[in-house]
């Protein structure tokens, strides 16, 4: 089988298109690159969906944690504490078995036991909690003068939040949020190792890399391939978030702009 045939057979294997059987012997480099790349579809899917949904919830959480309402503040604080204080790996397991038990009560919960929805929910809540804490920190660092100026212009309530507080919050939080996004994508590799079944061997990049490492008993080829994919993905994220950062900082003189510094000492 030529490499082009392999691409044809396995490029979309992870979403159930193409060849049904995974390669079983005589593994070629091409097969490993294509199949692991195919698995990246899942990582990107989890990452983007959780990031977009999580961004909205994170803003809400940050505002709630900063609010003067006691119950709202406590609820947000606890949500953030639970998801930041426990390992994501355990959260996945817990959520999977929770959905599995709920399935017994009502068939409504059937789709939740699949990775595509169940794991996405966990990642969504998890990233919302981490980003919520980042946004909360930024919300507290919004300069007092900005808010006073808004008051002076007669801006209040939602208008003040939308036009003054929120953009400044995002600008201050953006470097940290970039790191959060990178680690969210890294965290997506845990999904298929934590209870959620890979239906018909449709797994993510690490699932296939692990498959090859198990079959060939040679970790020196599949894992570096996977690492290559993730480094590329990280560079894309850094690039895209850098563009947003540039836009958020466009009104500031060059020397006062926040630079995105990549700080990798975070993990769930």
């Amino acid at each position: 089988m030529s490499c082009w045939d392999t691409v044809h057979a396995y490029a979309f294997r992870s979403i159930g298109m193409g060849e049904r059987l995974l390669p079983r012997s005589d593994f070629t480099i091409c097969e490993q690159i294509v199949l692991i790349g195919s698995g990246m579809i899942w990582n990107v899917y989890f990452g983007i969906c959780a990031l977009v949904l999580g961004f909205a919830l994170a803003t809400g959480l940050a505002v709630a944690k900063n609010s003067s309402n006691f119950f709202l503040r406590k609820a947000a604080t606890w949500f953030i504490f639970v998801f930041r204080g426990s390992p994501l790996f355990i959260q996945f397991f817990f959520a999977y078995f929770l959905f599995l038990s709920l399935k017994g009560f009502s068939p409504v919960f059937d789709p939740f036991t699949s990775a595509a929805l169940g794991a996405l929910i966990v990642l969504f809540f998890n990233t919302a909690a981490y980003a919520g804490e980042i946004f909360y920190g930024a919300l507290q660092s919004v300069p007092k003068g900005d808010i006073e100026a808004a008051d002076a212009y007669g801006l209040a309530g939602l208008a003040r939040f939308r036009r003054i507080v929120w953009p400044t919050m995002l600008r201050l939080a953006w470097p940290a949020y970039t790191n959060e996004a990178i680690f969210l994508f890294h965290a997506t590799t845990l999904v298929f190792f934590s209870g959620f079944p890979a239906w018909r061997q449709q797994g993510d990049a690490l699932y296939y890399a692990n498959y090859f490492a198990d079959k060939t008993f040679n970790p020196f080829i599949p894992y570096p391939i996977l690492a290559g994919y993730f480094i590329a993905l990280t560079l894309v994220i850094v690039g895209l978030f850098g563009l947003v950062n540039k836009r958020l900082n466009r009104h500031l003189p060059a020397d006062r702009r926040a630079r995105v510094r990549y700080r990798p000492n975070l993990m769930r």
Partner: peptide
């Protein structure tokens, strides 16, 4: 080394690589 690549990859990699 740890930048850009999920740490779980290192975990899975090193256990076999060290053993071998």
């Amino acid at each position: 080394m740890v930048r850009g690549v999920p740490d779980i990859v290192f975990f899975l990699f090193f256990v076999i690589a060290l053993d071998q």
